[in-house]
Amino acid sequence: NQASVVANQLIPINTALTLVMMRSEVVTPVGIPAEDIPRLVSMQVSRAVPLGTTLMPDMVKGYA
């Protein structure tokens, strides 16, 4: 089972991601792979992401 990136806190719209905002977790459906966490740092979210939400490619500007 592949771990995905999950929000560790509420991430407001247009916030630049930092390591403390993200954790890896095995979830369904699968989201952005956990190994991409270093690449996500400083990228902005395109919408508010609630705590515990799996990050999907369309939620991060410039990821897809």
Rank of each mutant, 00 (worst) to 15 (best):
M56E: 10
P57A: 10
E25Y: 06
V30R: 03
V41E: 04
L10H: 10
A34E: 10
R47M: 13
I11T: 02
T18N: 05
A34K: 05
P29D: 10
A3R: 05
E25Q: 06
R23Y: 09
V26Q: 14
I37F: 03
N1T: 15
Q44R: 07
L19H: 15
V27N: 03
S4G: 05
R47V: 14
G52E: 04
Q9C: 05
A7H: 02
L19P: 11
D36H: 14
G52C: 09
P29S: 04
T15I: 12
V45F: 00
I13D: 08
V41P: 01
K61Q: 11
A48M: 13
A3F: 09
K61E: 09
A16C: 08
N14F: 07
V49M: 04
A48Y: 07
I32H: 00
A48I: 08
D36A: 09
S46T: 13
S42Q: 14
G62W: 05
A7P: 01
V60D: 02
R23T: 13
T28E: 15
A7I: 11
I37M: 12
V20L: 08
R39C: 11
D36L: 07
R23F: 05
G52I: 02
E25A: 15
S42N: 08
P33E: 04
T15P: 02
K61N: 11
V6E: 01
R47I: 15
E35G: 07
A3S: 15
N8P: 01
P29V: 08
P29K: 04
R47Q: 14
S46D: 13
M43S: 11
V60L: 11
P33Y: 12
M43F: 10
M21A: 06
M59E: 03
P12D: 13
V49I: 14
A34P: 08
I32W: 02
G31N: 01
V26P: 06
A16K: 09
V6Q: 04
P12F: 05
V5R: 00
M21I: 03
V60R: 00
T53H: 13
P29H: 07
T53Q: 14
I13A: 11
N8E: 09
E25N: 10
V30S: 14
M22I: 11
M59Q: 04
V6N: 02
N14K: 07
L51R: 12
V30E: 15
L51Y: 13
G31I: 02
P50S: 14
G52R: 04
P29L: 07
Q44F: 10
E25W: 04
V60I: 12
A64S: 14
V20W: 08
A7W: 01
M22A: 02
P38W: 05
P57I: 06
A34F: 07
L17Q: 00
N1F: 15
N1V: 15
E35Y: 06
R39W: 14
L10V: 11
N8F: 04
R47H: 15
L51M: 15
S24R: 05
R23S: 12
G52L: 05
A64M: 13
P29F: 03
G62M: 07
D58F: 12
S24C: 05
Q2E: 15
T18M: 06
Q44T: 14
I13Q: 11
Y63F: 12
Q2V: 10
P50G: 10
G52F: 05
P50R: 07
P50Y: 10
E35S: 11
N14E: 11
G31K: 00
P50N: 14
P12C: 06
D58M: 09
M22H: 00
L40V: 05
R39G: 12
S46Y: 11
L51P: 12
L40D: 00
Q9T: 11
M56K: 13
V27G: 03
N8C: 05
I37Q: 08
L17C: 02
A64K: 15
M43W: 08
N14S: 13
S46P: 03
E35V: 09
P50C: 07
P38K: 12
I32N: 00
L10W: 09
S24N: 08
A3T: 12
V30Q: 07
L40F: 02
L55K: 00
A7L: 03
I11Q: 01
T28V: 10
V41Y: 04
S24M: 12
G62E: 10
M43D: 03
V27T: 11
T54H: 03
S4M: 02
T28K: 04
V41H: 05
S4P: 00
Y63A: 04
L10Y: 08
Q9E: 11
L10D: 14
A64Y: 04
P29N: 06
V30F: 06
T18W: 03
T18E: 13
M21C: 03
